[in-house]
């Protein structure tokens, strides 16, 4: 398809050069990493930047560090990079499962996690994991750096607190220090790739700390604080899980759209929480559980 909109293309090779470009062009520019969102927007006339700044050649933005306790995901790190990392697969299960649920290989080879949280579509699969791991977003502009806690990052659908002259350097994640298990459960319409109609991230520690996060069921992804409070400090029992399920509707605000109805989303989210908690319970006991068909189908 021919692209009508014309723009300038820049390919800085250093962070300094990138920041200079941003300082000059700010609102009128867009940053390009994987391009799996931006290319669609430009082609369909939804975005028309005057310039596109390709950051793939900036080494500082390609940093990718994984240890047992800490992950740093630079702006250029793709979902495939995350998926192919054995340490993430073994120790950061919720993040790994979230990455696996994104689209398909051909998209994951380009799409970046940072791009995902900057596009900020309410159904973004990376959000629940980042919320549960209490991630921090690292920003920089010509004037300096700052960090934003992930639960303050999104303000509305497609909107973040990033200023026009800022670049997200990367995202850092921390883990609970206690033994824990996690999982990501995603509601799609069938077995193939789909935007989440509801997404649930869970982290449960052996000491009964619970982190629960939703995407696609509200204008921005959220931590389910009421549910976490109910469960905090308690071992999971069917009765307790049932109580938690009853709280779900008080924390999520799904809409009816072309993909799903509010009624169905409300119903499924309760099931997702129940099954997700059961999975985490099993995984805490070192049972191997595959969540790819956890909702059936």
């Amino acid at each position: 398809m021919a692209v009508v909109h014309e723009f300038q293309y820049h390919k800085p090779t250093s962070l300094k050069e990138t920041l200079q470009l941003l300082a000059k062009q700010g609102e009128k520019s867009r940053l390009l990493a994987g391009g799996t969102d931006l290319a669609v927007y430009i082609k369909e006339g939804l975005e028309y930047p005057e310039s596109v700044i390709d950051i793939k050649r900036v080494p500082e933005l390609s940093k990718f560090e994984v240890t047992k306790d800490h992950v740093y995901i630079g702006a250029n790190v793709t979902f495939s990079d995350i998926l192919e990392n054995q340490k993430i697969k073994n120790n950061w299960q919720l993040l790994w499962e979230s990455a696996r649920s994104v689209a398909s290989v051909g998209i994951r080879n380009r799409a970046t996690l940072v791009g995902n949280i900057c596009s900020a579509i309410p159904s973004m699969d990376s959000a629940p994991a980042l919320l549960c791991y209490e991630a921090k977003v690292h920003l920089r502009n010509a004037k300096g750096t700052r960090q934003v806690a992930i639960d303050k990052w999104w303000t509305a659908p497609r909107k973040t607190v990033r200023k026009a002259d800022e670049i997200v350097l990367g995202v850092s994640l921390g883990k609970p220090s206690d033994k824990h298990a996690g999982c990501y459960i995603k509601l799609g319409r069938y077995g193939g790739e789909d935007l989440a109609q509801a997404g649930l991230g869970l982290l449960v520690t052996a000491k009964h700390e619970y982190r629960i996060a939703w995407c696609a069921v509200g204008p921005i992804p959220i931590r389910a604080k009421k549910t976490e409070k109910l469960l905090d400090g308690k071992a999971l029992t069917p009765a307790l899980i049932s109580k938690a399920m009853d709280l779900v509707l008080s924390e999520i605000t799904p809409i009816t759209d072309i993909r799903s109805s509010r009624e169905y989303r409300n119903h499924i989210c309760r099931i997702m929480l129940q099954r997700g908690l059961e999975v985490c319970n099993d995984r805490l006991k070192s049972k191997k559980v595959d969540t790819s068909r956890i909702l059936g189908g």
């Binding site: 319409r189 069938y190 077995g191 193939g192 790739e193 789909d194 935007l195 072309i258 993909r259």
Partner: peptide, 28 residues
């Protein structure tokens, strides 16, 4: 099971793409 054409009351097709009109993949 999942192909679902949606028109609005004004006769406009709301899902003219594979993002929202789902045809089978290798996973199905």
């Amino acid at each position: 099971l999942y192909e679902d054409m949606r028109y609005d009351e004004k006769g406009k097709l709301l899902n003219p793409n594979f993002t929202d009109y789902k045809i089978p993949t290798a996973m199905d």
